[in-house]
């Protein structure tokens, strides 16, 4: 019997769809390089590059203009790195139609909440994320995005790239 490489039977997801959750850090770049290296030469994989821009509450800014400037700067920076990440995947063998680039401004208690929700909606079988290597103190006060995803993501595999 022929194997359908577009489906992932282990996680029960409908297709082999990898979400790479990124920002503009070096660890995110490493996560993209990893996916390119490991999956770029195989057919049947689809990749979504997701860049969540976690917006502060409206009251964090003095004015609406200040908020819009902040958001515009974030979107510009995200657009720049996402183009670079897309090129990495194309160079590694992914065809253009198998790559989706999403830059999403969101409001939530944490980036991890956003990533988990997007995974549930898109039904990706794998989340790939770079680890920032934060200090114990920072993890204590603000938590670790990769740890939260490892513990809370359901029905998917999680790859954390050092």
């Amino acid at each position: 019997m022929a194997i359908d490489h577009t489906k992932c039977d282990i996680t029960g997801m409908v297709e082999r769809h990898i979400m790479i959750a990124v920002d503009s850090s070096d660890n995110s770049r490493r996560a993209v390089l990893f996916v390119g290296d490991f999956f770029g030469c195989y057919e049947g994989f689809r990749v979504t590059l997701l860049h969540v821009i976690l917006e502060p509450e409206a009251t964090y800014f003095r004015t609406g203009d200040e908020r819009q400037q902040w958001l515009a700067a974030q979107l510009e920076e995200a657009g720049r790195v996402m183009e670079e990440y897309r090129h990495i995947l194309v160079d590694a063998g992914f065809t253009e139609e198998r790559i989706t680039v999403r830059i999403e401004p969101m409001q939530a208690p944490s980036v991890a909440d956003c990533i988990i929700r997007e995974q549930e909606e898109m039904k990706c079988c794998t989340i790939v994320i770079g680890r920032r290597g934060i200090s114990k103190k920072e993890e204590f006060i603000f938590g670790s995005t990769s740890s939260r995803i490892i513990h809370e993501a359901k029905k998917c595999a999680v790859l954390v790239i050092e």
């Binding site: 502060p56 208690p109 944490s110 204590f140 006060i141 603000f142």
Partner: peptide, 15 residues
């Protein structure tokens, strides 16, 4: 007082 940290909005309150 307000602060912004993408990893957790409420962590500093818990601290």
């Amino acid at each position: 007082y307000d602060y912004h940290h993408p990893a957790s909005m409420f962590g500093y309150d818990l601290f």
